[in-house]
């Protein structure tokens, strides 16, 4: 069968290493997500995640709204945006139960619709469906600095108590973070954009660095499947780190396996 697939050109042999890695990663993540016997995991404390509830509480005490935005750099299919929307579910749930208003400006109408649904569900589940305001979820502009101006305008006028900047950010990152800083909001950011991380670290109170954003939902949920998938992530990372140490040593000994393995 294998030789048939290769002979017909249906499968490109050059992709074999990639296929093995994809199957290995999917297999490990799926196995750990669905296994039945799970011992409780001890999670490393991440201050930015622990501060999310405090931020919502602080905004509620001050009688100010909170702002949540997913950045201009990602569309709905980007994993960072999906991770950010998972966090929105938690933040909106807290905001709804505390009776805090949540504003969600975005650059993408599809993200706006998804966010609307998440926030509406959160208010329904908290028993306050009447407090959900559809026009608090705003499609501002698809243009980068149109979006940045729009969010800056909302922050400057509404003076939110807390701002959550989770997602893929580009040039607008520092403009948004500094405006939030000037307006005195407690800011928590998280992004996979390496260049913007440095800006967020300077201008925000807490920053989730790269992968921490993807794992945040595991910290905030009781679902063992989500937590187990994070454990699987760490296992794969351990395998990669081992290879990154072993392969150069082997290469120095004259055995070059880079192409065969990575």
């Amino acid at each position: 069968m294998n030789s048939f697939i290769l002979a017909t050109g249906v499968f490109d042999p050059a992709s074999l290493v990639l296929l093995i890695w994809v199957l290995l990663t999917c297999g490990v993540v799926s196995y750990f997500s669905y296994r039945r016997h799970v011992s409780p995991l001890r999670l490393r404390a991440i201050p930015g995640i622990a501060a999310i509830e405090e931020a919502v509480g602080r905004a509620t005490e001050q009688g100010k709204p909170i702002v949540f935005t997913t950045g201009w750099g990602g569309d709905i299919q980007r994993p960072t945006t999906l991770a950010a929307l998972n966090l929105l579910r938690f933040v909106a749930g807290k905001a709804a139960s505390y009776g805090c208003r949540i504003l969600f400006p975005t650059h993408d109408p599809v993200i706006a619709e998804a966010a609307k649904e998440i926030i509406r569900t959160a208010y329904n589940e908290a028993g306050h469906p009447d407090q959900f305001r559809e026009d608090d979820v705003t499609f501002v502009s698809p243009s980068q600095f149109g979006y940045a101006s729009g969010v800056d305008g909302i922050v400057s006028r509404q003076k939110p108590g807390a701002i959550f900047l989770f997602g893929t950010f580009e040039g607008e990152a520092l403009i948004l973070a500094e405006t939030g800083n000037i307006n005195g909001a407690l800011q928590i950011a998280g992004t996979d954009s390496t260049i913007q991380l440095s800006f967020f670290i300077v201008a925000c109170d807490y920053t989730l660095i790269g992968e921490e954003l993807y794992t945040a939902s595991a910290y905030l949920t009781d679902d063992h499947r989500v937590q187990s998938s994070m454990y699987a992530q760490d296992l794969i990372r351990a395998v990669l780190v081992t290879l990154l140490i072993l392969l150069p040593i082997l290469a120095m000994l004259g055995v070059n396996l880079y192409k065969e393995i990575l």
Binding site: S30, L82, D192, Y214, S229, Q233
Partner: peptide, 9 residues
């Protein structure tokens, strides 16, 4: 790695 795990979830 996080992207793959999130997409799979």
């Amino acid at each position: 790695i996080g992207s793959v795990a999130t997409a799979l979830r």
